[in-house]
Design a protein around this nucleic acid. Sequence first.
DNA 1: TTAAATAATCGTAATATTGCGATACAATAG
DNA 2: CTATTGTATCGCAATATTACGATTATTTAA
Lengths: 110, 110
Amino acid sequence: MGATKSDEFSVKDNKIAGYAKALAHPARVAILKLLMKRQACICGDIVDELPLSQSTISQHLKELKAAGLIQGDVEGTKVCYCIDEKEWHAAQELLMGLFTTYDASKGKCC
Amino acid sequence: MGATKSDEFSVKDNKIAGYAKALAHPARVAILKLLMKRQACICGDIVDELPLSQSTISQHLKELKAAGLIQGDVEGTKVCYCIDEKEWHAAQELLMGLFTTYDASKGKCC
DNA sequence: TTAAATAATCGTAATATTGCGATACAATAG
DNA sequence: CTATTGTATCGCAATATTACGATTATTTAA
């Protein structure tokens, strides 16, 4: 008990939930915004910009990478992260699909 | 240590993260889809449709309600849930805003 | 080679989430 | 009033997340 019963739900619902989970922390939202603001990507500058330790930032980056939303390029002693365009759009489509499903069925409540 | 440092981030980023968190579980995604599919809303039928116990469903509904995404109307001994249109659109706008920020700055990576 | 810089990982602690059974509560039916 | 139905809440156990300091690579610079 306690573990999420992912198996019991559709692949699509799990994907949506997975992308949502990646966005479900303000630090990760802030990181993504930073990556977008600087049209080129950054690395440990994120650590300077956010109020979290290096190791914590590193973990958040790892999660965003695991979700597929970002990529990391090793450049010498630094690592350069950026949005993964393809997955970013995939996430956008899935989440938007969920939201627009509502407009389709303009149901009124109870 | 271990608690999320919400205070350290912007209100907006926290809102985005909050909505995302509500969508970050396949059961909640499934619930929202059900509420939309039946243009009118349901209640404990959700329990019959999903592979989770009544108490677990109830908790997920509570979270969705806390996030503002759904409303619940007591109807006799039953409770009828439905999407909260206003908050739903607010969530949609915030999340879309995040996604489209990328298109604006067609940055290429590293 | 050695030192410095940068990032990833490990270990640990605190807290949050997920899930369920049992129980409590509310409203209707009889 | 009492029984039934439908839902919420409580208490617990299992697991996951968040955060950090310390350590471990890894690569460049000296």
